[in-house]
Amino acid sequence: MLIIGELINTSRKAIRPAVERKDTAFIQDLAQRQVEAGAHYVDVNCGTLVHDEVQTMEWLVDTVQEAVSQPLCIDTPRAEAMEAGLAGVKNGQPMVNSITAEKERYARILPLVLKYKAKVVALCMDDKGVPASAEERITIIRRLVTDLTADGVPEDDIYLDPLITPISTGDHYGQAVLETVRFIRREYPRVHAVCGLSNISYGLPNRKILNRAFMIQTMAAGMDAYILDPLDKAMMGFVYASQALLGQDSYCGQYLSAHRSGLFE
């Protein structure tokens, strides 16, 4: 299970002012706490700072890497900001977040994935937009895997994101994601599946409950990576518990370590 810590993102109210004033201590503390809580990658996103995104991305990458040794997930649709972030990565194999099947975006981002030998989050959308059904998602996934592997990206470096749509806008959207993840696991066993969970509960009360429940359901379907808040102890507890129950945790070692650390208290 790969956990990508999502908190260093300027779309979050507490993060944008800290990034704008270049608050090194704040950002580094947040990076360290995410890693200590179990993040394998740290996501960095400053996309709301449109006019200064390139320079800010460079600062964020340098600042986070001074504090943690985990690799970074460079999160932006802009090729210029993506390259600025990737060029500064020193720790491990970087991750690109993200590429899509949209022709223009694919053409701009693919060369960076190859140049920096990065893992890549591939969003299940094309020039028609976000698909509504599992069938439409599967069609796009087939194209993404075919194109990415033909262009030289190893299957193990591909992280397919089926794109979660709020169930408040359609009863079938949760099932569409689960069907898509089952397809990925069945047809492409060496390719990974990743998602951010929070969209599933958008517009509804008690959002964290829905997010955690959907995480368990998607894990059972075959999801093996998440972009989430690792400081959410209940969420991380369900990650470790689910891995143990699904036979993904040898002799329940990670579950027991989490118990000894007090995670479940």
Rank of each mutant, 00 (worst) to 15 (best):
F26E: 10
L256N: 14
L210I: 06
E83Y: 07
E83H: 03
L228K: 03
T48Y: 12
C124R: 07
A132K: 14
P131K: 10
F238L: 04
P77M: 13
E136T: 00
D23T: 00
P17I: 07
L60D: 07
T169L: 14
R105Y: 01
K119Q: 11
I74Y: 04
Y173C: 02
M215C: 00
T10K: 06
Y173S: 04
M219G: 08
D224T: 07
S168W: 01
T24H: 11
R182Q: 10
A241N: 08
P166L: 01
T63F: 07
R12Y: 13
Y159L: 10
V145W: 03
E104F: 05
V96R: 06
I184K: 05
C124W: 04
T100W: 08
P162K: 03
T24F: 10
D62L: 14
P71N: 03
R33L: 01
I15C: 13
G253K: 15
I4A: 09
F26W: 07
K117H: 09
V64I: 13
Q28G: 06
A107H: 02
R16P: 10
M223V: 02
G47L: 14
L204C: 03
L49G: 13
L60W: 06
H259Q: 15
V191F: 05
E265C: 12
I216D: 06
S11T: 15
R186D: 10
L228F: 06
D43T: 11
D43H: 10
P154E: 06
V42F: 11
I3Q: 06
T139A: 11
T169P: 00
I74A: 03
M223H: 04
E155P: 09
R21W: 07
L256M: 15
T10L: 12
S250A: 15
I216R: 08
E58M: 13
L30K: 07
L7R: 12
A67G: 09
Q93W: 12
V239M: 00
V113A: 03
I158N: 01
M236H: 02
I109C: 01
R142H: 11
G262L: 00
T56V: 14
L228C: 06
N199Y: 05
E135T: 09
G47K: 14
A39D: 12
E6I: 03
I184F: 02
V42P: 09
E155A: 15
D171A: 14
V54F: 03
I4P: 03
N206T: 00
C46K: 11
E179I: 05
A87C: 04
T76S: 13
G5V: 08
L231D: 01
H51T: 15
K115C: 04
M1A: 11
V54D: 07
K119F: 11
Q217F: 05
K90N: 04
D52M: 12
Q243I: 12
R137K: 06
P71D: 06
L86M: 08
M1W: 02
M236D: 02
G222T: 08
T165I: 14
D75P: 08
N211D: 00
R207T: 05
T146F: 15
A213H: 10
R182K: 13
D126N: 00
R137L: 02
L114I: 00
S242A: 11
